[in-house]
Design a protein around this nucleic acid. Structure first.
Length: 298
DNA sequence: TCATGTGGCCGTCAGGTACT
DNA sequence: AGTACCTGACGGCCACATGA
C-alpha cells in the first residue's frame, strides 16, 4: 500500500473534527497517553515526550458514545449535499481527478482547507528567497544556490562568492564571516566541502564536492551570450547549459518532493496515532456501557 | 579490525500531469 | 503542442550497527 492509498483508506474513517490535527508535531507511530484538556482539545502524548493538541478528535467529555455516530452522520450528509450540487458534467471530471494520484502538496493543502489546524504547504521558494535576501551581502547577488547540506551560496555580479550556512540564515541572520572570496579555483568551506571552479568553457561553473565522496553537486552559472565561442561550440554549450539547468531544477524538485513526502508521512502517522487512540477510547466506552446495561438487565 | 547489512539521503531518469 | 513541474523508481554513497 502506498501513501496515497493509506491516506484514502484513512479518510474513510476520519471525521471533520479529526482533521483538525496539527501537522506541526513530530512524527509518531504510536502515542503513549492521552489526556482530555478541555471539551474540544485533547492532548496526545507522543513517545518522544512531545505532545500534540488535537481538537475535537475524541469526544471524551461526552456522556455517551452514542453521540459519536452523530458526527459521522453529519459528515455523510454534508458529502451527500455536495454530490447533489455537483453537475453531472463535473462528475466525470471529478472522477478523472480522483483517479489521478494527487501530489503531496495538494493532499495536504486540501486537508488544511478542510481544517485550519493543518498547515498549508507554502511555496518554499519565495520563503527561501526572503531568508536569503535578508542575509545577503550588500552587493546584489545574481545567483543563489542551496547545497544539499542546506548551505546557501550567493554569487554576486562581481564574481564574489559568499557562503551562508542554514544556521546562519535561521539564526542570528549574520552572513558567514570570511566566506566571501573572489572567483577561487578551489577553496574549503564549512570544513566539509570544497568549492571548485570547474569551468571548462566560458560558462562559469562551480562544483561543491565532499572530500570523502568526491561526488559533485554541479552548479552552473548562466553566461552572457557575448562570451560564447563559435556557433557550433555555442550550440553545444547551449545544449549542455540547458541540460545542466534542467538537471539542477529537477534536483531541487526532487529534494522538495522528498521533503513534502516526509511531511505527508508525518501527517499520516499523526492521524494514525489519533485514530488509534479514538478507537481505544470508544472501545472502553462501549465496554462500560455494556457493563451498565448488563447490570440493569439483572 | 573487517565484512556485511541497513537506513537515510541524494541525483538522475522516465512518465504522468498541469498549464499556457 | 510545448513546457514546466511532480514523483516513483533506481542506483550510488555514507554513516552506523552488528557479528565473526
Amino acid at each position: 500500500m502506498d501513501a496515497s492509498q493509506l491516506d484514502s483508506s484513512l479518510n474513510e474513517s476520519v471525521t471533520d473534527a479529526e482533521e483538525d490535527l496539527s501537522d506541526t508535531s513530530p512524527p509518531a507511530s504510536t502515542q503513549e497517553s492521552v489526556t482530555a484538556e478541555s471539551s474540544d482539545v485533547t492532548v496526545v502524548q507522543l513517545p518522544n515526550g512531545q505532545t500534540v493538541q488535537v481538537q475535537g478528535v475524541i469526544q471524551a467529555p461526552q456522556p455517551s458514545v452514542i453521540q459519536s455516530p452523530q458526527v459521522q452522520t453529519v459528515q455523510i450528509a454534508a458529502v451527500a449535499e455536495l454530490d447533489d450540487e455537483e453537475p453531472a458534467a463535473d462528475a466525470q471530471k471529478r472522477r478523472e481527478i480522483l483517479s489521478r494520484r494527487p501530489s503531496y502538496r495538494k493532499i495536504l493543502n486540501e486537508l488544511s482547507s478542510d481544517s485550519p489546524a493543518v498547515p498549508k504547504i507554502e511555496e518554499e521558494k519565495a520563503e527561501d528567497e526572503v531568508q536569503v535576501s535578508s542575509t545577503a551581502p550588500a552587493s546584489v547577488p545574481t545567483s543563489i544556490y542551496q547545497t544539499s547540506a542546506g548551505q546557501y551560496i550567493t554569487i554576486s555580479q562581481g564574481g564574489t562568492i559568499q557562503l551562508a550556512g542554514p544556521e546562519t540564515l535561521q539564526g542570528a541572520g549574520v552572513p558567514q564571516p570570511g566566506a566571501a572570496i573572489s572567483s577561487p579555483q578551489q577553496l574549503f568551506i564549512q570544513g566539509r566541502q570544497v568549492l571548485i571552479q570547474a569551468a571548462t568553457g566560458d560558462i562559469p561553473a562551480y562544483q561543491l564536492r565532499s572530500p570523502n565522496s568526491g561526488l559533485a553537486q554541479s552548479i552552473v552559472m548562466a553566461a552572457s551570450p557575448s562570451s560564447m565561442e563559435s556557433p557550433s561550440s555555442q550550440h553545444a554549450e547551449e545544449i549542455t547549459r540547458k541540460r545542466e539547468v534542467r538537471l539542477m531544477k529537477n534536483r531541487e524538485a526532487a529534494r522538495e518532493c522528498r521533503r513534502k513526502k516526509k511531511e505527508y508521512v508525518k501527517c499520516l502517522e499523526n492521524r494514525v496515532a489519533v485514530l488509534e487512540n479514538q478507537n481505544k477510547t470508544l472501545i472502553e466506552e462501549l465496554k462500560a456501557l455494556k457493563d451498565i446495561y448488563c447490570h440493569k438487565a439483572e
